[in-house]
Design a protein around this nucleic acid. Structure first.
Lengths: 213, 213
DNA sequence: ATCCGTTTTGAACATCGTTCAATATATGTT
DNA sequence: AACATATATTGAACGATGTTCAAAACGGAT
């Protein structure tokens, strides 16, 4: 068998990605297997390996789209004074997570085997997302250097990731009856308002920031 | 074959747990398979199922020990004024993560299948850990209600989890050149100092906390 | 010495990712 | 129109996974 010509290679790739995305949305990373993706698009398992290097490659590409979607959702937040924009971006983050929690979870559930790094385009995608957020949140973060502003954004990025991850994997309800979104707002507010109160929370002397007043 | 009597059932269970812990420390969750654990203790795969309900059960029990160890490490932090204690507990957290990063990562990498919840003893273990931390951090968190103090601790718990997770899975270096520990201090400091500055960051009006001054 | 009850085994099953020789078809050439 | 070439597609095969369970082997009691 060969050369069915139903679809071009590029079309096939998109079909496979869409199928994987659907499965991931419904069942999470576990459900995404080569055979199931292949079956869903009406091809044999081997065909997947004409389109992707392996299953990891396929998943990373789905994750790339998810990441781009998150970036777009955050970029869509406009206007408002700096602090309400921070709030709206936090909301946009959780909106996006809740849109397809298992698909979002795959962003972090998936781990490449030892020694294999994420592809360069993925790193750039992620870098741009953080950079964009840093630029948009800059005004809310007080008068920090660009480096310190970015550091604050990375802290927010990691914190929201932690909250959403625990929430999606049902490990947040074990320790709190507070909705994930509310915790997210609390942390972002802490960082943002920390910037508003005074200049203590810059990178050069975090230690001192522990001592009250 | 049967009744080798080399070990009691309880001993065997500990042997299996220790073997799994070693493998997890070296290779992470992926390396922990029934056959490898069995081989390492010199028994057949089927024997594992005399000791544990299934592989998930075994892993949850290893995770329970890891969690208990983290709790002990945090509880060991004593003395000092409230804010230096907060700092030391944050250090203790990252010390513990760095002691065996892949073992720690298994705490969150592992997911029970759909519909299966964590056992009650695990929930209690976790609840005690958070409760302890809330009690110890209380003085550093200003004059909040116990409920709000606990919420702040949960926020810290989730944030540190996010940072450490991204760090261990090498996804933090993609967006920042800051060590995970430093980011952790930054966040804890933000929350702690947020409590120190004034009373705005309580649960009842997080929204308002976004507006500067 | 015999029996019983329990522990331990390992073959078996369904699934997984991955490889690759075989094949069937579209395309290019005559 | 017939043939040749190239390649897209297949599916069997391999090793590994979690899990089950009948069979077997052994310790202890009678």
């Amino acid at each position: 068998m060969a050369r069915r010509n139903d679809h071009s290679a590029a079309e096939l790739k998109q079909l496979a990605l869409a199928a994987a995305r659907t499965i991931a949305s419904e069942e999470g990373l576990r459900g995404v297997t080569v055979r199931r993706v292949a079956e869903r698009i009406g091809y044999a398992p081997g065909t997947i390996y004409n389109l992707f290097a392996n299953l990891d490659d396929l998943i990373v590409q789905v994750n790339g789209e998810t990441l781009r979607g998150l970036g777009a959702a955050l970029a869509q937040v406009g206007g408002g004074d700096p602090s309400t924009r921070a709030r709206r971006m936090t909301d946009a983050y959780f909106d996006y997570v809740e849109l397809a929690p298992r698909l979002w979870a795959m962003l972090f559930d998936h781990r490449l085997p030892d020694g294999v790094g994420l592809p360069d385009w993925y790193r750039q995608e992620l870098d741009r997302l953080i950079g964009d957020a840093a630029r948009r949140l800059g005004p809310a973060l007080g008068d920090r250097s660009p480096a310190d502003a970015r550091r604050a954004v990375v802290a927010i990025w990691a914190s929201l990731h932690g909250i959403a991850t625990l929430s999606v994997s049902k490990k947040l309800g074990l320790v709190a009856d507070v909705p994930a979104r509310e915790l997210g707002h609390f942390i972002v507010a802490s960082i943002v308002s920390g910037a508003a109160t005074d200049g203590r929370l810059n990178s050069s002397d975090i230690v001192q920031s522990y001592s009250k007043i």
